[in-house]
Design a protein around this nucleic acid. Sequence first.
DNA 1: TTTTCACTCCCCAGAAATAGTGAGGAGGCG
DNA 2: CGCCTCCTCACTATTTCTGGGGAGTGAAAA
Lengths: 243, 243
Amino acid sequence: MASVMTAMQPLEHIMEELERADGLGALQAASEALCDHYGIDHVVYHWVDSAGDQYGCGTYSNAWRARYLEQNYLRVDPVILGCFQRFHPVDWKRLDWSSKAAKAFQAEAITHGVGNQGFSVPIRGPNGQFALFTVNHSCNDAWWADWTEAHRRDLILIAHYFNEKALEFEPERTPEQSQALSPREVDAMTLLAMGYSRAQVADTLSISEHTLRVYIESARFKLGAMNTTHAVARAMSRGLIVV
Amino acid sequence: MASVMTAMQPLEHIMEELERADGLGALQAASEALCDHYGIDHVVYHWVDSAGDQYGCGTYSNAWRARYLEQNYLRVDPVILGCFQRFHPVDWKRLDWSSKAAKAFQAEAITHGVGNQGFSVPIRGPNGQFALFTVNHSCNDAWWADWTEAHRRDLILIAHYFNEKALEFEPERTPEQSQALSPREVDAMTLLAMGYSRAQVADTLSISEHTLRVYIESARFKLGAMNTTHAVARAMSRGLIVV
DNA sequence: TTTTCACTCCCCAGAAATAGTGAGGAGGCG
DNA sequence: CGCCTCCTCACTATTTCTGGGGAGTGAAAA
């Protein structure tokens, strides 16, 4: 249980390497180092971006990665689907593998060298960023249960550092931080995001609907949005409004 | 630097208590225990929910909490605004305190016993859940820098556990994940959030605009939204779509 | 002091979204 | 085998939003 608290030099060394990492290659190297350190088959970091864009690094075979992307397994993979609704790290056994697609997916994964046991830590960043840190191994249930229990805390922390570095190295994936909205514009966007119509927003803010329109338009302009819905979506994803 | 890795019995004890916690009171107790353990002024967990709903526990005075809620400081607090855009834990000094509102807010916080130094860990869960774990103290910059550097890893981990427990105890705060959107509905919401008009979305999805409308309406119904903008906002804040 | 910016108000025509119906086929699940 | 959800298409009338204009105040920044 107390693994995080006990001295474990090689892990400490890997963590320090990770903190000093200055490129995506370092994450790949860290994945491999972690595999060696723990004596497990695979360590993988998988960033699942906005429009189904993906980025990852880790020790899965290139063939399996290619196949995964090519088949768009993103929309089938129970690990992705399950972790997206969770906060807790999760053992793969607790996911829903019942669908036909999931079973086929699993079978194919195993033929590509993916182990039967897995443990994934969901990680979330700003603007809806989502990633998974996964450790994977081929072994029996009891051994895996002991191992994951023993290293749970380490894995949470390592997952956090992986994501921290990935965000750092890929700033273009969390794009421009545009100019801020004026208070009135924030009010307008916020109320619109809450489902109020323009008339209701104007009424709530005690201004004419014409005036409100000016705010919406200027907010739309500042956010580079094509319409109100777009503007609200951008304001939300940039954290300019909290709804 | 290696604090997480070194034996530190009292912290270990607190963490184990936290893991066994079975109610919100336990988080409050853990906050106080952490204050004692570290010898700092405040430890606070603050859940900032979708609709501006808030829940928190920690060692701030009741007067300050009441004031914060009453004044709706959520929309002013640079800690909230800054952390919402970040993944890294952040020292309060690195936030933007330049606005007049922020300065007034800070001054008032200090009169309510909040320390001049702060360090906050942003945490995100499913469905757009967002929370902050903050440690706060009154001291000079050098001491604080040393302290936060020394305990950074612990704090990340403790923040994770606080949120894990908070999510566990408050399932009703992430309720209406019940109604997932169908794939087509997700497509529609996503493209609308990207600024496409209905005609463009229909074209992109290669369906008639009439069909598209059915998706938008059913999505709106499932999300309990009053209009398209509202539906998109809800879908985003619940993490159903990623833009 | 000048200039910029946020805030407020107004008109109009055309484009877009919404509300109320309707119906048929494909596929999964008990 | 029904039952269900999902996907697809259609019509009409009404409401709401958008994109062009223009104009005045006050506060803050340059």
